[in-house]
């Protein structure tokens, strides 16, 4: 089957690394991250912007990678879950989730941690923690230990 659309060159900075890739302009940023860049930490839960499993930081703001055509990410600076820990050390938020048992099956976890990290860095961005995390569905924890984790991270900030 001919690919009807021309591939385009898109430049991305992901977790501090620069990439230049040739890609179908409508390929979802999520698929580019997972397939082209092999960063499979960002998960797909629904593909329709409801569950938040694919939450990343896009030019510093939380956004959903399943809804962004890669062409719109040209020149963007992106952080994924893989970009939070460094030198084998967990980030403040990751460490809090570890201590407080904020993860169970783990599929919502990367998106949840991206939202939590943004909220901890920008406490004024939401009225409260629940609202800050409302875009990230979790089916295992009932959210309570996630709340505990975020509170713990705030304490250790």
């Amino acid at each position: 089957m001919k690919e009807p659309v021309k591939e385009q060159t898109v430049e991305l900075t992901v977790n501090g690394d620069n990439y230049e890739i040739n890609v179908h302009p409508l390929k979802r940023l999520l698929d580019v991250l997972r397939e082209d860049l092999k960063l499979t930490g960002t998960k797909e839960g629904c593909g329709e912007g409801e569950c938040g499993a694919c939450t990343i930081h896009f030019d510093g703001e939380p956004a959903l990678a399943c809804m962004i055509p890669v062409c719109q990410a040209d020149g963007a600076e992106i952080t994924t879950i893989e970009g939070l820990s460094s030198d084998g050390r967990l980030s403040l938020v990751q460490e809090a989730f570890h201590q407080e048992g904020g993860t169970q099956c783990g599929i919502c976890t990367p998106g949840m941690i991206m939202s939590a990290t943004y909220y901890i860095d920008n406490p004024d961005s939401a009225e409260n923690m629940r609202e800050a995390l409302a875009g990230n569905q979790c089916r295992c924890t009932g959210y309570k230990r996630i709340f505990d984790s975020v509170e713990e991270a705030f304490k250790n900030k």
């Binding site: 912007g49 938040g52 939450t55 896009f58 703001e61 939380p62 956004a63 959903l64 809804m67 962004i68 939202s115 943004y118 961005s125 939401a126 609202e131 800050a132 409302a134 875009g135 990230n136």
Partner: peptide, 9 residues
């Protein structure tokens, strides 16, 4: 409208 990441979009 929606949630924080959606409101960014």
């Amino acid at each position: 409208v929606g949630t924080t990441p959606l409101r960014n979009m």
